[in-house]
Design a protein around this nucleic acid. Structure first.
Length: 881
RNA sequence: GCCGAGGUGGCGGAACCGGCAGACGCGGCGGUCUUAAACACCGCUUCCCGCAAGGGAGUGCGAGUUCGAACCUCGCCCUCGGCACCA
């Protein structure tokens, strides 16, 4: 195919400048017209490469952060196409969510209208990036065609026991209903919209049993994810091995006793040291056990706790508080009566919501006991120590201290695993004040005490997770309706599959409030029970938008399939996603939910893979110029359109890649974008006008003799192939900033030859085409234009640069003939010497020792040793001894 | 507070495995071209002392390990992300 639009290269006047505004839309149209980037999913002839970038929330318009995620990912897509892969790079919109409702309430518009208008804007902007999205696979999560399958999946989860309903508290505003954490403001916790004081309200809500998969989620084998993300997920899941121990309440004037109180502990070996017990203020037995004269204090404390956030409660920095409830518990191993407290540092959602407190061996318990004057009984001590000498701080984590450093690094370690690895030194810690265990190694008591309890039915080994089941209920309009009908006789009944989707009503009247308008929608609510046909009420909660993003990549493979959520055959071929890119802020929630969903869908027989994303890259976040997260409400959003209009998409793409490491992000500043624009201009000049001088470098090397010409040929080839070698590595590991720096370096090198005879050489020609090919994935428009001009100049038919093969490194051309060796004396740099690349250590040492500066630096000192570091990379002469 | 990441010139950053600190770019300074300016091109640019040759200091702070530390270890300070209803 001949490119008729392209200006012939015969016009080589310097007046013809790089004009992105003219070439970029032209090529974008051409690519779209040729459907260059639609993917034939059934093409089995080439290696498949599923490249996924987190689908954007349609917040209004693209900001520079979207470009920061998506343009380098587009470069990955183009790079893989140049390696012959069948690349699938879809895009869609995460279209449900809170901001649409906020906009709707504020501006009295419909969330759907707001969302769809934003999507339209963002589609246009996404095209202006020159990105190669497979638009025919687009998924929009607020489309009933998509959310119908959220509902279908939810119904399957219900049927398989993976979904259930339970009561849990929400932050509640009397005017605006349930509030998100970001909608609760200030230390006094008031509503962002109306300022009312935020309360806790208990609501029956829907959950998914993520905890069923806790152990499997800890297993990252088979996926190549960054270690920090794996560690964060591991810590988030927080598996602890310990024991559940049954205490009983002691009889008291207001209470007959004998009530079971289960505690979870990771340190059953310290059971004899328990001197009090702490229940979470929300613990179900608190009301029943509280003595009448303690009720006022206890109620006040419970109320105060409700006003606190979990982050506050768990702060180890904060002074520990609590109140006694006027009841005692009995220690199952020694019958000791210990007082029961409630304290906000114990959470109802973790373990059993109750702990035995062992102040001698737990820092928080120690702080609490010290504050309230409670006894501290030491039960573990070094063999020869006086067990009753008062402790000045909790004697803790000795097992951890003794563990190998590698085990300690990963945080949130299971104490028992460390105890099992206990060293000989750990065995010198023995039990004291522990009845029959006195004098025995503490590392043996852990299992021993649990076994003894188990024999009496008073305890057992237990595993607890920090991970909680996923609360998916949202008291909001703009989401997927939970497909459940509440019937007075049949209870919560799933909507029959043939009645799906449960459509979200299109008309909505918020009446200026954040409270869920579905609660007022009589037509929506009043239905008949699918089981008995009697009058029933529809569930008005909608699903968390993280449900939408937990399986969307499967749907991309068959976005319009109407008899099931996924095309199992396509999913089998294309899963898991080969490369996923998106923000590090999703390290735990979205990326964990996606793994959970994949496993749950596997167990439903819908997919065969257990992991969604084989490789993951979390790029950093672009912050506003103020260093804060970019958001409309902060007014620090950077609009890329203006930059694109001024510099062109290629420059903006390249600048974002050049700013710094991709996983780092940082505050936005356009400082330096001119340098990138200048670079592209220089590439343009090299390719279109290599013979010009434009007041160029008078010192440029010129090939005047045969010998000089050989040297110029070698130098150009060496520069080209070294750059290719380095740039290829940088592409593979997404190190865009250094990749571009290398291309700039090559461009600078080639510029020195501009206007000399060198530009007539075949090596020059190779250098220019290699430069264009290396730059093509990152700056697709300018390289396509220059490529077309080169073909046209040679009278060859047009063939897109983006379907060319990635060039191959000539290692011989790239090899160094000589190298420069730095010479240190006692670790200080004193000299450098250039030697042949293949020099031996002995020869090198002779050369080094003969250097004037080296002789001067050594003086009359004695040379103790000479270190040849890194295979001759550096020589260090160590003096004296 | 807890978990994760980070802190290097005036600025963004480079140094990939413990081996030349500061690649590449911005900014600044000087020069070429121009009547002039802009553009473009060429050079210099970590700091301190020095005309120079050269010397000294230096990667958040403080210790340590090593022939050698931006990199490893320990303690501290600061910034960013997450902490379960923002997405």
């Amino acid at each position: 195919m001949t490119d008729t639009d392209t200006t012939p290269t015969t016009n080589r006047t310097a007046a013809e400048r790089y004009d992105p505004a003219r070439i970029e839309p032209k090529w974008q149209d051409r690519w779209a017209e040729l459907r260059l980037y639609d993917t034939d999913l059934s093409d089995d002839s080439r290696p498949r490469f599923y490249l996924l970038t987190m689908y954007p929330y349609p917040s209004g318009a693209l900001h520079i952060g979207h470009w920061y995620i998506k343009t380098p990912t587009d470069a990955i897509a183009r790079y893989h196409r140049m390696h012959g892969d069948n690349v699938f790079y879809p895009i869609g919109f995460d279209a449900f969510g809170l901001p649409a409702e906020n906009a709707a309430i504020k501006n009295r518009i419909n969330p759907r209208d707001w969302t769809m208008a934003n999507i339209e804007t963002m589609r246009r902007q996404l095209r202006s990036m020159g990105a190669t999205f497979a638009w025919d696979a687009e998924v929009v999560s607020c489309d009933p065609e998509y959310y119908k399958w959220n509902q279908w999946l939810f119904v399957q989860f219900l049927k398989h026991g993976l979904a259930y309903r339970a009561v849990s508290p929400v932050d509640w505003c009397p005017n605006d209903g349930t509030l998100a954490r970001e909608q609760v403001e200030g230390a006094d916790r008031h509503c962002w919209r109306c300022g009312a004081k935020v309360e806790k309200r208990e609501l029956a809500q829907w959950y998914l049993r993520t905890t069923n998969y806790a152990d499997e989620l800890l297993d990252f084998s088979g996926i190549d994810w960054p270690e920090p993300i794996r560690i964060q997920q591991t810590n988030w899941i927080g598996r602890s091995t310990g024991a559940e121990i049954v205490f009983e309440t002691a009889p008291s004037p207001h209470h007959p006793g004998g009530e079971e109180l289960r505690v979870f502990t990771t340190r059953p070996d310290t059971l004899y040291g328990a001197t009090f017990m702490v229940l979470a203020p929300e613990h179900p037995l608190v009301a029943q056990l509280t003595a009448p004269d303690r009720k006022a204090d206890v109620d006040a404390y419970v109320a105060a706790t409700q006003a606190k956030t979990e982050i506050d409660r768990l702060s180890t920095d904060r002074e520990k508080t609590g109140v006694p409830i006027g009841a005692d518990a009995i220690n199952p191993v020694n019958g000791a009566r210990i007082p029961i407290f409630i304290a906000d540092y114990v959470l109802a959602t973790y373990g059993t919501g109750a702990i035995m407190a062992v102040p001698a061996h737990d820092e928080r318990d120690f702080a609490f006991a010290t504050r309230y004057g409670l006894p501290i009984i030491r039960v573990i001590a070094p063999r020869d120590a006086d067990p009753d000498e008062p402790l000045t701080e909790a004697f803790v984590n000795k097992a951890v201290d003794e563990a190998p450093a590698d085990d300690r690094k990963h945080g949130w370690l299971e104490d028992i695993a460390l105890i099992n690895k206990g060293t000989d030194a750990a065995r010198e810690l023995v039990m004291v004040n522990s009845g029959p265990w006195n004098g025995k190694p503490a590392v043996d008591a852990w299992h021993g005490i649990v076994e003894a309890l188990e024999a009496e039915g008073k305890g057992k080994e237990a595993v607890t997770y920090r991970l909680r089941d996923w609360l998916v209920s949202r008291q909001r309009y703009w989401g997927t309706p939970v497909p459940v009908i509440h019937c007075p006789t049949d209870g919560a009944v799933p909507v029959p599959e043939e009645d799906l989707p449960v459509l979200l009503p299109t008309e909505v009247d918020y009446r200026g409030s954040g409270e869920n308008p579905l609660n007022r929608d009589e037509a929506f609510i009043n239905v008949s029970c699918p089981v008995c046909g009697g009058p029933a009420k529809r569930e008005t909660d909608t699903l968390d938008t993280f449900i939408d993003s937990s399986w969307y990549w499967f749907r991309y493979l068959s976005p319009h399939k109407d008899d099931g959520p996924v095309d199992t055959e396509m999913v089998r071929k294309w899963s898991p996603v080969d490369q996923y890119t998106g923000g590090a802020e999703h390290a735990v929630m979205h990326l964990l939910y996606a793994r959970f969903f994949t496993k749950a869908m596997r167990d439903l027989g819908l997919v065969t893979e257990s992991e969604p994303f084989r490789k993951l890259f979390n790029q950093g976040q672009i912050l506003g110029a103020d260093g804060e997260r970019m958001s409309k409400s902060r007014g620090n959003v950077q609009d890329p359109d203006e930059l694109v209009a001024r510099y062109g998409a290629d420059t903006v793409r390249l600048f974002l890649m050049f700013m710094g490491p991709w996983d780092q992000g940082g505050p936005w500043s356009p400082t330096g974008i001119g340098g990138v624009a200048k670079f592209l201009n220089r590439v343009w000049t090299l390719a279109t006008d290599p013979r010009g001088r434009d007041g160029g470098d008078g010192l440029a090397p010129a090939a005047t003799t045969d010998e000089d010409e050989r040297a110029v040929r070698d130098a150009i080839r060496a520069a080209t192939h070294r750059t290719l070698r380095d740039v290829t590595e940088d592409y593979e590991s997404f190190r865009w900033n250094t990749m571009i720096a290398k291309l700039m370096e090559l461009t600078n090198t080639l510029f020195r030859y501009r206007g000399t005879d060198a530009v007539e050489l075949s090596e020059w020609d190779e250098a220019i085409s290699t430069l264009l090919l290396m730059l093509a994935p990152a700056a697709p428009h300018i390289t396509e234009e220059l490529w077309a001009r080169r073909l046209d100049a040679r009278g060859e038919p047009w063939d897109s640069i983006h379907v060319q093969r990635w060039p191959v490194v000539d290692e011989r051309a790239a090899a160094d003939q000589t190298r420069e060796v730095p010479i240190q004396v006692n670790g200080k740099l004193r000299d450098k010497v250039t030697v042949p690349a293949g020099i031996s250590e002995i020869e090198l040492e002779q050369v080094v020792m003969a250097r004037d500066k080296v002789i001067a630096a050594i003086g009359d000192a004695h040379v103790a040793r000479v270190i040849h570091a890194g295979g001759g990379k550096l020589v260090n002469i160590v003096l004296r001894g």
